[in-house]
Simulated scan of single mutants.
Amino acid sequence: MRHAPEPGRSLAVLDAARIVANLRALFDGHRLSPSQRRIARYLLDNAQEAVFFTSADLAERAGVSQPSVTRFAAALGFRGFPEFREALRTSVFGDRQPAATDDRHNEIQELVTSEIRDLERLRDGLADPGQLRRVAGQLAGSSPLLVMGLRISAPLAHLFGYLAEKVLPDVRVLDVPGSIMEDRLSRAAESGAAWVLAIGLPRYPRELEQGLVWARRVRLKIALVTDQPVGRLTDLADEVLLAPVSSGFAFDSHAAATVLCTALLHTMLDTLDAEGQARLEAFDDRAAERQVFLTG
């Protein structure tokens, strides 16, 4: 049975910003699986009604299994869902305020502030998510899906590939240039691949341009994540997704590009709908059974 709201306390007048701040404090510092992050996102958007849910209610609303909700509560350090729900109610109905911040920043903090501004530029550029959704749908429909990244862009390509293979049946990361890359592009095209996601961040390797030229030669479409709207790489792309690169640190920071790729993966999962979520659930179940990840 669901609990009734607190007498005399209207949900409509609760401070939404305070609730979100309290919930983020509850979630921060914990490593959550994709399914658990789905639950967290649902709670951030629907906390005022979720405080009255059972674990089965929350699982149904968030689109996950009931064991995933139980594992979510455990991942946050609670002994069970009832204890977590009490903490959730405190976050919603309590009167705690976010801690005050000091406006004085040192040099490193100023560099981080510059990075935050880049992320804000990325956020503003996604005000219309139409292109992101279009590209996500195209990539999700490509089997195999190819992810290309060389030199400094290779780690982000591998991160994207590692996460994408949790929800797609065939993901291939291409990080070796030259004839080997040409062979792999050709074989993938013959196997039915339609799209390659290329990550081209400065400094731009000459071999990346050569790889994109070959991709077009074997009739693959190209989605490019880069920081410049015009250039030799963008001329070869069918879709260009822009993410600013911060050059204030001794080495370039790719925080915005990483967030953009994560947003692209998130949108791909939405595109796949039940199929992608089922693959994520299966991965979580296998990982829990095999005790792949530390819990303490």
Rank of each mutant, 00 (worst) to 15 (best):
M1E: 07
P5M: 14
G8P: 09
L11M: 11
A16W: 04
A17R: 13
R18N: 08
L26V: 04
H30P: 02
S33Y: 08
S35I: 04
Q36I: 05
E49P: 01
V51G: 08
F52D: 09
D57A: 04
E60P: 00
R61P: 00
F72R: 06
A73Y: 08
A74T: 11
A74Y: 08
F78C: 05
F78G: 03
F78M: 06
F84H: 03
L88P: 05
L88Q: 05
F93D: 12
D95V: 12
Q97S: 13
R104G: 03
N106F: 10
I108S: 14
I108Y: 12
E115Y: 04
D118Y: 04
R121D: 03
G125L: 03
A127Q: 12
R133L: 01
G137A: 07
S142A: 07
P144H: 11
L146G: 02
V147K: 10
L150E: 00
S153L: 05
A154E: 13
P155L: 06
P155Y: 10
L159K: 12
L159W: 14
F160L: 12
A164L: 04
K166S: 08
K166Y: 03
V171G: 01
R172E: 09
L174E: 07
R187Q: 14
E190R: 15
S191G: 05
S191R: 15
V196S: 02
L197F: 04
P202N: 04
R203V: 14
R203I: 08
Y204M: 07
E207H: 07
E209V: 08
G211M: 09
G211Y: 07
W214G: 02
A215D: 01
R216H: 09
L224V: 04
S253L: 11
A256T: 06
T258R: 09
A263K: 09
M268V: 10
D273F: 06
D273W: 10
A274K: 10
E275I: 04
L280F: 11
A282L: 10
E289M: 10
R290E: 15
Q291N: 13
V292S: 12
F293W: 13
G296F: 07
